[in-house]
Every structure is written in C-alpha cells, then in structure tokens.
C-alpha cells in the first residue's frame, strides 16, 4: 500500500527534478511538456478502457471538446484562462454525459463503432462550421491571451510546470479511484459485468460515471493543450487522436496508473524519430498496434505487475 504511493509520488518527483535541476535540453523540455498533457489525456482514456473495460474509439471527441470549448471562448469571446478552462471542463463533462447515455445503449463491438462514429460527427462538424472553427487550418491563441495569474504560459519553464501540475492532478485522481471502492466496482465490471450486476451494482450507472470522469479528464487535457501550446486545429479531432491514447495505454499497461505516461513517452519519441526518416511515419503506429495485440497484451507496467510487483496500482 505505502510502497505503491511512494512509487507514484517519486515518479512525479523525478519529473519535477528533471526540470528544476536543468537536466532537460530545451528540445526535450518542450517535448516533455507536450507528453505530460497528452499523458493526462491517456489517464482519462485509461479510466474507461483500462479500469472499466470499455473500448472507445472516439475519445478525440472529448479531447477536442475541451480544446475547442476553451480555445474558441478565448479566440472569439476574449475569455480569460480561468473562464475558458472552466468552460472546457463543463462542456466536455456535458458531452461525455450525452455520448455516454447514448453509446451505453450498446455493448461490445457496437460500443466501439458507435463511439468512433460520434467522434466522426464532431470532426466533420468542426470542418463544416469552418467560419467559426477555422476548419482544417485551425487558429492560434495569441501569447497575450495565454496569461494566468500574471504568469506567461508560453514561457517554456512555466509551461512545463503547468503541464506537470495537470498531469499530477489527473494521475492522483486515477490513483485515488484505483484504490477506492468505486474503482473496485469498475474493475469488477471489466472482469465480469454480468456478475457485477448480480451482486446488485447498477452497472450502467457505473459505466456512465466512468465515461463522464474519463471524458472530463480528456477534455481538461484538451483545454490545457490548447492553452499551453497556443494552437487549436481539426487534426486533434481526427480518428488518429482517438487511437493515440489507446496505443499509449496498451503499451504502458491498461489499468495501471503509470501506464499512459510510459506509453506516451515511448510513442512520442518513436514517432518523433520516425518522422525524420519518412513522411509515412504513422506506419509506426500501425506496427506498434499489431505488436502489442500479438505479443504484449499486458503492456510494460502491466507485465511488471504481473511478474514481479503485484502491489503496483
């Protein structure tokens, strides 16, 4: 129990020390800021996929809900950071509620396809309402708008700490859920939803809660991504942004707290490296997906937990 909490806190401490001791080069500092926000998105995804066992192929919808709600409110309505962040969280929570309510009418394979399709509606809508969203091109959030408590969020150092803060928040929420009775029920639903139902749990309601938590964390990550890196575009709503978190979670280990972070670091650098060599760098994603399904179903942390450290959350 205590070992577990120490492990996760020290992971956060390492991420903090890497920055404060100036170990990062400017390039890696920027990369890691991105990775941390994306890993927070992965944490959100993991709540639904890793813990509850529901495979969504449409999480880009929640990520872009946060991204666009906060981005558009700054761009068009001159909201400040607090207001836009709050709006981003509310909108993504609301959308998760609606999508969850509809998609949970299906199970299994249908659930996967339906989430994919909802996400596709969002993507096409962003393109269709191009006069507001700037479509494929997207828009830039000016540096002057990206100021929070008189801190300039475009400053690389502040940006890194902000990203770390957001990731830590999401990770600790995840850790807390994993250890709570609520989290146990989610795992029970993943393992055998019929049995969970026959123990008297309102399985649908738990699944709905799980989608709302997962979607809201994803939306929070999306909102922060736009604010910290100053760009909002339709590519974040495309199918590949639904596949990425799935891949991070699979590589790092589904149903593990640190899995999304490990998976995001791994894939980010792999893609970064591949894109220097070829335009068709997404082939890496394809190969990685096949590799994990064929040979490494538990992922990195999952394998460690299975073989050596049973106490890891």
């Amino acid at each position: 129990m205590r070992k577990d909490i120490i492990l996760h806190l020290s992971a956060l401490l390492i991420l903090f020390l890497l920055e404060i001791l100036g170990i990062f080069s400017e390039y890696h500092q920027g990369n890691f800021a991105r990775i941390l926000v994306l890993a927070a998105y992965g944490v959100g995804y993991n709540i639904l996929f890793g813990y509850t066992g529901l495979l969504s192929l449409g999480h880009a919808l929640f990520f872009s809900a946060g991204l666009y709600a906060s981005g558009l409110s700054i761009y068009h309505l001159d909201y400040n950071i607090e207001q836009s962040l709050f709006l981003g969280i509310c909108i993504s929570a609301l959308i998760s509620l609606i999508i969850g309510f509809l998609a949970l009418r299906t199970i299994g394979v249908s659930f996967m396809i339906v989430t994919l399709m909802f996400s596709q509606i969002a993507y096409l809508s962003i393109l269709y309402f191009g006069s507001i969203t700037r479509g494929d091109e997207g828009f830039v959030i000016q540096q002057s708008s990206r100021v929070f408590l008189s801190m300039d969020l475009s400053n690389p150092k502040i940006r890194y700490y902000s990203a770390l803060l957001i990731f830590s928040l999401c990770m600790l929420i995840n850790l807390w859920i994993a250890k709570s009775p609520f989290g146990r029920v989610l795992v029970a639903i993943r393992e055998n939803s019929d049995r969970a139902l026959m123990l008297g749990y309102n399985v649908k309601l738990y699944k709905l809660f799980s989608i709302i938590i997962s979607g809201t964390i994803s939306g929070l990550a999306g909102a922060c991504y736009g604010i910290l890196f100053g760009y909002v575009g339709a590519s974040f709503a495309a199918v590949s942004y639904s596949i990425f978190p799935l891949l991070w979670v699979l590589i790092g280990g589904a149903g593990t707290v640190l899995g999304p972070l490990i998976g995001a670091i791994f894939m980010f650098y792999l893609i970064d490296y591949a894109s220097d060599i070829t335009d068709a760098y997404m082939i890496i994603v394809g190969v990685a997906l096949l590799f994990v399904t064929l040979f490494a179903r538990r992922g990195i942390i999952g394998e460690l937990r299975f073989r050596y450290y049973k106490w890891i959350s």
Binding site: P181, R184, V185, V187, A188, E191, N192, R195, A196, L199
Partner: peptide, 16 residues
C-alpha cells in the same frame, strides 16, 4: 463459475 479472477479472494467477497 463467475468470479473476478484478477482480484483477490478478499476483494471478491468485499465486492458483494
């Protein structure tokens, strides 16, 4: 048999 096989015996009973 319908138990939560990845959970411990204790956790299984606790869930009920």
């Amino acid at each position: 048999t319908a138990i939560f096989s990845n959970l411990t015996v204790y956790e299984n009973v606790a869930l009920s």
